[in-house]
Simulated scan of single mutants.
Amino acid sequence: MGLAFLPLGLAFGALVTQSDLPWWWAGLSAVLVFGGSFEFLLIGMVTTAVPLAAIALSAFMVNVRHVFYALSFPLHRVHSRLGKAYSSYALCDEAYALATRERARGWSGRRVLWLQLFLHLYWTASSTAGALLGTLIPHGVTGLDFALTALFTVLALDAVRNLRGDLPTPALALLSALAARLLFPDQMLLTAFALFTAGLMARHLMTRRKPSHA
């Protein structure tokens, strides 16, 4: 899993320097933010001087899934307050996938913490290396920012496969993106997130209120 971080971290670091940000910005972001996909979005927001409130809202919308991860993540096995604080901070998709599987039920809190620490180190090291190597890439080279698009495309395809016939969900996501593009092109990401979240909540309420037939 850690090795899977390398190509994405290298792309992120290279994109940082190609966006005219200092090379150390990649490592600092990896250590403090540790948000993966959101860090790619953050590059564009920083370089275009997006207001801090918009950045905070985007971070919330992208990472709100972690609130639900915490419901089943084995944080109770970590006993120290400092360990719990770091484990909560370093919770990512990969750590959740590894620590909640069947074979991880016997893992101690120390092993969970080491898992999260090494994933954090993999991301930080690969991002920093990518930034240092990115300084050697000529400015005429383009397409590094497509790494984020490719990441989301793969995640979307995997999600659609796992829906098992639930076509309304990807359809709702597509409609939300199209509506945001047409109505608020300058704030497409936030608008699409908001529309999609509102649509999911409305569908959930409608499903709950729908009478069941025995």
Rank of each mutant, 00 (worst) to 15 (best):
T48V: 11
S176V: 10
T124F: 14
V50H: 02
P211M: 04
D166S: 12
F73S: 10
F193P: 11
S80K: 01
L172F: 04
A147F: 08
D158L: 15
M45D: 09
L155F: 13
V31T: 11
L172M: 10
R105A: 15
A147E: 09
V46Y: 04
D186P: 02
A14L: 09
K84L: 10
R65S: 05
A70Q: 03
T17S: 14
G83S: 04
F38P: 10
S80F: 04
T191F: 02
A192G: 06
F118R: 08
L205Q: 09
T142R: 12
M1Y: 05
L183Y: 07
V33D: 01
M1E: 08
N63L: 11
P51D: 07
P74M: 03
V78N: 00
H213A: 13
L132I: 15
A4I: 07
P7G: 09
Y86I: 08
G9A: 11
R203S: 11
A49P: 02
T142F: 05
R209M: 11
L98D: 01
H79T: 14
M188F: 05
A179L: 15
A59C: 10
W107K: 01
K84M: 05
Q187I: 06
L195Q: 02
S37E: 00
S58V: 09
S29W: 01
H76P: 00
D158Y: 10
T153Y: 08
T128E: 03
G13R: 06
S108T: 15
L10A: 11
H120P: 11
A14S: 14
T169Q: 08
F38K: 05
H120Q: 13
H120V: 01
M1P: 12
